[in-house]
């Protein structure tokens, strides 16, 4: 395969077209390389957000052949099987600014609504934690905020209920805080009502597209659903808590 055709979206929120570009290929070439070739040699007006080209900054998210992926991690040879053109579109769930650049600020605004870690009064000083207590939440901290999970989530993508559901990325952030051994806040009400964990119907698309291979659904969202069930749907646990006078926030 010497050359490949890229069909790249060109336009803004008012509309746009797919533009064909013929790009020479080389071994190990990724889609971001092809986009860079277009910018340098064919059309310098093509807009694209990127930074590290090492799958760590989460900037170059796009929809490649209809699936949200990082352009820097997606090999041209995998996408152009049988000489098919590669279709590159911006993230569908968020408003487009220009070409492949979308406005993902909604995610940051939601992130700001989540209260940061509130250390419990009995937290050790200095704060030393055992590995067994942080094993789980370390996985969540691998998130690079590429928002692929947000764009693939059908609740945001197809149903567009952004007022009622924060999306997988923010639920992982909430899981990270709620499972922290020394966080003093009971976040279950927020997880249920504001973040809308009940909207998730666990189809696991967020897990499928995560470039950091975080088990978003199994290790983050489902445990949050279970924590909400503890509080709101389990009369036995409710009774035990009442009788024992146990705190809502479990240690």
């Amino acid at each position: 395969m010497d050359k490949v055709i890229l069909k790249v979206f060109r336009g803004d929120s008012n509309g746009g077209t797919e533009q064909d570009y013929e790009v020479p290929t080389f071994e190990g070439m990724v889609v971001l390389d092809a986009i860079h070739y277009i910018q340098i040699n064919l059309d310098s007006t093509l807009a694209c957000r990127w930074n590290c080209k090492a799958a760590k900054c989460g900037s170059c998210s796009a929809e490649i052949n209809g699936v949200p992926r990082l352009m820097c991690k997606t090999h041209v040879s995998d996408m152009a099987a049988n000489g098919r053109p590669i279709v590159v579109h911006p993230l569908k769930t968020f408003p487009v600014i220009r070409d492949l650049v979308t406005d993902v600020s909604w995610n940051y605004r939601n992130s700001e609504k989540i209260k940061p870690l509130q250390l419990a009064p009995d937290a050790p000083k200095p704060l030393v934690m055992q590995q067994m207590d942080v094993d789980r939440i370390q996985e969540f901290r691998k998130c690079i905020e590429c928002f692929l999970c947000q764009t693939v989530c059908h609740i945001l993508r197809n149903h567009n209920v952004k007022e009622q559901f924060y999306g997988p990325r923010q639920l992982i952030k909430l899981a990270n805080l709620d499972m922290h051994p020394y966080d003093a806040l009971d976040r279950r009400e927020m997880i249920r009502k504001e973040a809308g964990v009940g909207f998730c119907n666990i189809t696991k698309c967020c897990t499928e597209v995560c470039p950091e291979h975080i088990h978003i659904t199994d290790n983050g969202i489902i445990p949050l659903k279970e924590r909400v069930a503890d509080e709101y749907f389990d009369p036995i646990q409710h009774l035990i808590r009442k009788l024992s006078g146990a705190d809502k926030k479990k240690k």
Partner: peptide, 30 residues
């Protein structure tokens, strides 16, 4: 709902509520 990841859903649904409303809240009793 959805048939696969990043695939459009075929029918326009009135209002999506997932598992946040009855009868799907029953799933919480697993």
């Amino acid at each position: 709902d959805p048939p696969a990841c990043a695939v459009e859903e075929p029918a326009a649904r009135k209002q999506y509520t997932g598992e946040s409303r009855f009868p799907f809240t029953i799933q919480n009793l697993h």
